[in-house]
Computed example of a mutant assay.
Amino acid sequence: MSDSPYAHYGTPDPEYAALYATLPPPIDYPIPVEASRQMLNGLVSMNHEMIKDKLPDASKYTTVDHSVPVANGTARILVRTITPTFKDGTKYPVLYWMHGGGFVMGTVEMSQDGLLRLGVELGITIAIVDYRLAPEHPHPIPVTDCFEGLKWVADNAGSFGGDISKGFIIAGDSAGGSLTAAVSHLVRDNPFFQGKQPSGQVLHIPCVVDPRAHPERYKLELRSLDMVENASMSGLNREFIYDIYRKHLRNSPEDPTASPLLFPSHANLPPAFFQVAGLDLLRDEGLLYERVLREAGVKTKLHVYQGVSHGFHLIFPQLAASKKFEEDFKNGLVWLLGGAKA
């Protein structure tokens, strides 16, 4: 194990370790991007089949796909909205979701089932953005697509049953957590969002800094990427994390829109709810970013899940830790919608 101050979080969860021991050996990296996409899409389809009978009845929500222009009208992206069934014209707070997948894979379906259940249970309209993926669309395209999709949602929420004055949360997991962090800063500084500011942000297992650009003052804290003991159980590959930035996004390491930790100020951001996996190679940057936001005066709430991998809640939904993750997520949304009160 690396000498991270947070290394104790990496002691494997016994239930996760037992399940991991039954799996075939991990596939050697590198894996071609297209093959990675097919593998992830297959996993999403398999998980959907496992839980489809537990999803809300179709009469309880409406799903609509919207084609949204971006890049000055030269391209279009999908924003899928899921709205609880209207009751006497009721409109709902809005959750805008940016999916994970290392910026190179992932679709709107990736977290849709879980978001659908939460939306129906809590009375929230969900908007999931299908931003364009690297390497075909390198940085900053994923960021700008998510930003422009958010502008569209802010302007059009009423047309799909949303009311951002009741709550406007931006959220994502993994790469989507990075996009959430970057977009939060861009929104804060953009006049368009005056009077339309998001009221909260959710960062699941986020990546927030290019490993080529770890600030000197934080290097002793950012050590989980160097994990050795149990690294094979972490759910990520160290080389893949480097390749996200240097090979696929092809961003400047110091660009804060790719490394939100590097924004010169984190003040005046919306309250932030964090969920971090203890055996994740990205663990330390999630923990550090929560502290940096808190020290900048941002209200935060943090949950750490001992000894489980990156994406554990999606890959192994049967784990007790995954069920706790989903319950904590629900409670985190309630906290944000309630004004992030202590």
Rank of each mutant, 00 (worst) to 15 (best):
Y29H: 12
T22H: 09
G176W: 00
G73E: 10
A342M: 12
P26E: 07
E254T: 14
P24L: 10
L78V: 13
D28I: 14
M227R: 13
N41T: 09
H8F: 15
T180N: 00
A182E: 00
A7D: 11
I169E: 05
S159F: 05
N72A: 15
Q38W: 10
V209T: 10
E229Q: 14
K330S: 09
V292S: 03
G195Q: 03
E295V: 10
F263E: 02
G338E: 05
K151N: 04
M50Y: 12
Y242S: 03
P69F: 10
G332N: 06
L122P: 00
R188S: 01
I244G: 10
P206F: 01
I169M: 01
E34D: 15
G101E: 04
D284N: 07
L115E: 01
M110W: 06
V108Q: 06
Y9A: 14
P140I: 05
L279E: 08
F240D: 12
E290W: 07
V187T: 04
D255V: 01
A272E: 00
G42N: 09
H8L: 14
S309M: 15
D280C: 07
R250V: 15
A181Y: 08
N47V: 11
V64D: 05
V64Q: 14
P12C: 06
H303D: 13
Y16V: 04
D280T: 10
S111D: 15
T125L: 03
L261E: 06
E295R: 14
I170C: 02
Q306I: 09
G100W: 02
R238T: 13
P93I: 03
I77Y: 03
F86N: 14
K196T: 10
G10L: 05
A17S: 11
G100E: 01
Q275F: 03
A75G: 06
D130Y: 00
I77W: 02
F316K: 08
G89W: 00
A231T: 10
M227I: 09
A171T: 05
P142E: 04
T125F: 10
G149N: 00
G114I: 07
A58C: 09
H48F: 14
L78C: 12
G73V: 08
S199G: 12
T11A: 14
Y9M: 08
V120G: 06
S36A: 15
G73Y: 09
L150S: 12
D280R: 09
H137E: 06
N72R: 13
D65I: 02
H310E: 04
G123L: 02
D65P: 07
V298N: 06
D255I: 01
R283T: 02
K330W: 02
A18N: 14
V108D: 06
K324T: 12
G177P: 02
G339T: 03
V304M: 07
P93Y: 01
D130R: 00
Q318R: 11
H214V: 13
D280A: 11
K166I: 07
G339Q: 09
A127S: 00
G106W: 07
V104Y: 08
I241L: 14
D88S: 15
P135H: 04
P260T: 00
F312L: 06
M233T: 02
V209F: 04
R223H: 08
N156C: 04
D173C: 11
M110P: 05
D328K: 07
A342E: 15
G332R: 01
K54A: 13
R117I: 08
P138T: 10
I241S: 09
H8W: 15
S252L: 13
T11S: 12
Y29A: 10
L186V: 01
A213Q: 04
L222W: 04
L314H: 05
A7T: 08
Y6L: 10
